[in-house]
Design a protein around this nucleic acid. Structure first.
Lengths: 264, 264
DNA sequence: CACCAGTGTTGATAATATAGCACCGATAGG
DNA sequence: CCTATCGGTGCTATATTATCAACACTGGTG
C-alpha cells in the first residue's frame, strides 16, 4: 500500500517548533509504527543527515542535511526572499498575522510567516503542516489548483480538527465551489479554535494554484470592516507573489477579483 | 545491505545550485539505480513534498517540504543566523571566500557561505556535499570529532577528486595526526584544482567536533603572510561559532591554539 | 515519411528488505 | 527492590522492492 520511504518521511512531520526533539518511543507512538521500524528508518535518515541523534540524550531531531537542501532549493528558486517582504506588507496593512504556504505532497507546507504586532494575535507554529480541507489556504488551493488534487482530497478521510471542521465531502465540495465563485476563501475555526482565515491562491506558470497566502485573525476581532480590508489586501498579496514567482493569473480569475482588488 | 530509504535520500544529493532540476533518466544514470526504482522513489518523496515534479517538463526538483523542514530546524536551533555574521567577518578579514559546514551523515553539509569580493575568487556551489577526506573542513572534523567517524572514513573508499587527493588510508591518518597537533587543517587542491583551504573545527556541547569553518583561497594567491593571517582568523571564527552554538572547546584544544589566536 | 535515440511510465516476476513480535540491558521513580 | 519506562536488537513470515522488458511519446535525422 504505502512505501517505506513515505512512512519514513512522514516521521519528519512530527517535529515542530514546539517539539524539535523527539525520542524513539514517542515517535513510534505518534506515528503508530512499530518501534523497531521507526528505529531503522531514523537510522537510515541519519545516514544521509536528514535527522541526527543527540549523543547524550539519544533524542532525534532534524539534521543539518535539511539546511543544505533548503539552500539548494532557495538559491535555485528564491521563493522565501520574494514572499517575505510581501507578507510583511500584508501583515502591516491588516494588523494581523500573515503566512504563505505551498503545495507539498499530501498537504500544504507553511513556508513563511509574519506575525501581528498586537499582543493578542494568532501565532503559528513555524513549519506546521496544514491540511487542505480545514484551512482557508487549503480551500484556495483546492478551488484553483489541479483538479486531480481536489478529487484526491474529496475521496480521502477528512479529519475533524475542531467541532467546526467540514468533514463531509459534499459539504467541502460546495465550499470549494463558492470559493471558485468569489476568488478567495474563508474559514472560521475549522482548523483551530478562535482563528478566522482569509486566503487567496498563488499561481504557477501554468495558471494552476501552487500555494496560497492567508491572513489569520482572532475570530472575536473579525468585523465587517476588517473583513473587507483583509480581502483586498490578501488578493493583492496573492497577485504580487504570483508575479514575483513568475506565475500567471488565469484570465478568468483576474477578471473575477478585479473589483475587489481595486476597491480596497 | 543498504535500505531503500537511504537509496532514495541519496538521490537528493545530485541536486545542486548548478543543476536544480533533473530528469528521471539522468538521475538514474548518475545514481546507478534502475530507472523504475528511481521513479518509484521520487514518487514517494513527492508524496511528502520533499521533491516535486514540474507538470510540463516532467523534471524533478527539491520540493517545498525542504523549506518547511529547514524552518523547523532553524527556529528550534538557530544555526545559520549565528554562523552567517561570523562568516561575513571572516571573509572580510581574509579577503577570501569563507564557509561553514556541519556533519550530515556520511558527509559534510555546507550550510553557510560568504564569498570574497574579489573578481578572482573561490566560488562554492551552494549546498554542496563535501567529502571528509578531500577537504580541509573534513580533516578538521576527522581530527577533532568522534573517533568512530574517523575509523569509518579510514576504512571506506577514498575517491580521488583531483590528482592531489589523498587516497591512501595511512596517508590520511598521518594528515589527521598532524592536524591534531597544530589545531587547524590545511588542504591544497585535494578537492578541487587551484583551491587552497584552511579550516578549524566547530565543537558541540560534548567537546566533540560537529563541523568546521574554512577559508578557501585561490592556490596561486596563497602567500606566507596570507596564510598566517588566515590561520588566526579561522581559529577565532571557529571558536566564536562554537560559543554561539553553545558548544565547548576542549581544554587541550584551547591551549593548543591559544598562541595562534592571540598572535593574529 | 520512416526511423532512431531519447524520454517518462507501467506491468510482471523473482529476490530481498521489511514489519512485527518478543526480548534485552539500562535507567529512573516509588 | 520492584515496576515502568526508555533505546535498541534478533528473529522469521511476509510484503515490498528490484529488475527486466515493453510501452507510448517526443524530437531530431536520414
Amino acid at each position: 500500500m504505502s512505501s517505506t520511504v513515505v512512512k519514513a518521511l512522514m516521521l519528519l512531520e512530527h517535529f515542530s517548533e514546539d517539539e524539535p526533539e523527539l525520542g524513539l518511543s514517542e515517535l513510534a507512538r505518534r506515528s503508530g509504527v512499530d518501534k523497531a521500524a521507526v528505529h531503522r528508518m531514523l537510522g537510515a535518515m541519519a545516514e544521509t543527515g536528514l535527522v541526527e541523534q543527540q549523543a547524550d540524550s539519544r533524542l532525534y531531531r532534524l539534521g543539518a542535511g535539511v539546511l543544505r537542501l533548503a539552500r539548494v532549493r532557495e538559491t535555485a528558486f528564491p521563493i522565501s526572499s520574494v514572499v517575505q517582504p510581501i507578507l510583511d506588507t500584508l501583515s502591516a496593512e491588516t494588523g494581523e498575522t500573515a503566512h504563505a504556504s505551498l503545495i507539498s505532497g499530501r498537504a500544504l507546507a507553511n513556508i513563511a510567516t509574519c506575525e501581528s504586532k498586537k499582543g493578542s494575535r494568532v501565532s503559528l507554529i513555524a513549519g506546521e503542516v496544514l491540511p487542505y480541507h480545514s484551512t482557508a489556504s487549503g480551500l484556495a488551493v483546492l478551488a484553483f489548483g489541479d483538479d486531480a488534487l481536489l478529487q484526491r482530497v474529496l475521496s480521502s478521510a477528512l479529519e475533524a480538527k475542531t467541532r467546526f471542521t467540514v468533514t463531509d465531502a459534499s459539504d467541502l465540495r460546495s465550499r470549494v465551489d463558492s470559493t471558485q465563485g468569489i476568488g478567495f476563501s474563508e474559514s472560521d475555526q475549522t482548523n483551530e479554535e478562535d482563528v478566522h482565515g482569509i486566503a487567496a491562491p498563488i499561481f504557477d506558470r501554468t495558471g494552476s494554484a501552487c500555494g496560497a497566502v492567508s491572513v489569520s485573525t482572532p475570530s472575536h476581532r473579525m468585523t465587517e470592516a476588517q473583513r473587507n480590508l483583509t480581502i483586498g489586501a490578501v488578493l493583492r498579496a496573492g497577485s504580487a507573489i504570483t508575479d514575483g514567482l513568475g506565475g500567471r493569473l488565469p484570465r478568468s480569475y483576474a477578471d473575477l477579483v478585479a473589483p475587489l482588488v481595486t476597491g480596497a
